Amino acid sequence: MSEREVELWSATVVQHHRLREDLAVIRLEGEFVPFAAGQSVGVVVPQNPNVGRRYSPALPPSLDGKLEFHVRAVPAGWLSGAIVADTAVGDRWQIGAPSGRLSVDPDAREVIMIAGGTGLAPLRALVLDLARRPQPPRVFLFVGGRHPRDLYASDMLWLLDQDLDWLTVIPVVEEIEDPDWTDEWYERVRGAEGFGEDHWLQGTLAEVASSYGAYTDHQVLVVGSPPMVRATVRALVDTGTPAGAIQVG
């Protein structure tokens, strides 16, 4: 095993922002980590230093060592649940080697990004990275969830959509009504400026993204759960999008 494969960088939690019962945004500062926007990195947290996971930063790399992760607690996922519920400011995380090839081609003119849940994180990093280019490509970002409150980054995406004239955000929900149980964390942030019901398109990401026809002159990036990715890629190919134009994360 090479030295790079076992190298770890250190970062300290500076903010733990709980957005939903099962989701939190964690911001850290520390050593510069040499990843590229769209990649994932290894993460080891003090809640269980013997178990590592891979997460995709939601910010592009910065020389001042800023990192942001969007973490959802998955069923029977002890580590992800501990990160969401128990992370505290001051916790020291170890960041491992980056991997993955999700990226936007330098000569891409139009890009379709499709994010399910926290699959938004690497695509948000890519959008912010594109903002550094003198002439970014036109980007259409489909972001979806089962219910409206699953669109956990609505306020942030609203601001990006307003600030970046080359970006169009398309929020997608499978069901227009939220479930009838209360999520206290959502209630705390509810009402913040963001996309509302007048902006939502109803359906699955596969249905909505493929309803625009074949993306024959676009680069397409799809990130989310394995079932969502499979269904979306299948729908895109079935409607004429070349399989070779699609990257998955």
Rank of each mutant, 00 (worst) to 15 (best):
F195P: 07
T216R: 14
W181T: 04
A115Y: 06
E21H: 09
E175Q: 14
P227W: 02
V127Q: 06
L126N: 05
E174I: 01
L128Y: 08
A209H: 05
L8N: 05
M113Y: 13
G116Q: 07
S210P: 04
D217V: 09
I95D: 00
A125M: 12
V237D: 04
F35K: 00
G240Q: 08
W78E: 15
L221Y: 03
P179V: 03
D155S: 15
G244L: 13
Y212H: 09
L159N: 11
G30P: 10
A243G: 03
E207N: 12
G81Q: 14
V74L: 15
P136F: 04
D64C: 04
H147M: 04
P148S: 11
Q15E: 10
N48D: 15
R124A: 12
E174S: 07
A115H: 08
D178S: 01
R109F: 03
V6R: 14
K66L: 13
F69W: 01
V248I: 14
N50L: 13
A82E: 15
L8P: 00
G42F: 01
L126Q: 08
L59P: 01
H218L: 02
Q162L: 09
L141V: 06
A121L: 09
A209I: 10
L159G: 09
A245G: 03
G81H: 12
P171Q: 11
L79W: 03
G240R: 09
K66I: 07
M228L: 14
P49Q: 14
D86P: 03
L67D: 02
H17F: 12
S210G: 02
P227N: 07
E110P: 00
I246F: 04
P227L: 05
D165M: 08
P242D: 11
R133Y: 07
G52C: 05
F32I: 06
D183H: 11
V41Q: 00
A209F: 01
H147Q: 10
V229H: 01
P61F: 02
E184K: 04
G145N: 05
Y55V: 02
Y152D: 03
L19Y: 01
